[in-house]
Amino acid sequence: MFPVTSEHRRGNNPLTGQASNECDPACAKQARGDKGGSVPDSPLRNGAHLILLLAALLAGIAIFLVVRQAVIPEGFGLYGHYRAGALKDNRMKPVSFAGREVCAGCHFDPDEALRAGKHGKISCETCHGPQSAHAADPASGVPAKPNAQGLCRRCHESDAAKPAHFPQVASVSHSGGAACNSCHEPHKPGFAKIAGERSGKK
């Protein structure tokens, strides 16, 4: 690479010393003007180009705004970078578990009995399953009775991973596979059904 000299800037070839055909823009313009160019330079002609450019820009912005309006859903960005209506959509899902208060609104006695005993803090639907359909229309059907055998074991079968303070039994050695609710009353655990024999011990 050789250094740029004043020869280069003038468009002369420093090696040959001859003027090259190429020259800088100012010189080219001058050359065209000297040779009697048909279109004279006018400020209006350049202005027309600018107006065209501006119109294209404005049209672009307009198209962008129209497309943006069409594509971005209603309420987007109201609370954050999401559609505000999505909050309502999530709230509108149906409820399956009615909640204990709703159950206790009709079934006073079992609720009262349950509250008095060791199972007092357990919600009705923990054992009886989701009952909002029954709560909305009690005539629609009576909830099926849960299978006491499997249900009790699910919580109370001995398991080393369960916390030691939690009451557990090995059902096979405890009852030989007899149904739990033949001795125990699930709403009032203890020995309610054989109270005469054993309640004194507990």
Binding site: P94, I122, C155
Partner: peptide
């Protein structure tokens, strides 16, 4: 998980907490 958003916004607890027997 929506933390049962449809339940907690109307004063209910979540389904999992409702069904948990030990709290």
């Amino acid at each position: 998980c929506t933390l049962c958003y449809h339940r907690i916004t109307q004063g209910l607890t979540t389904a999992c907490a409702e069904a948990c027997p030990t709290g």
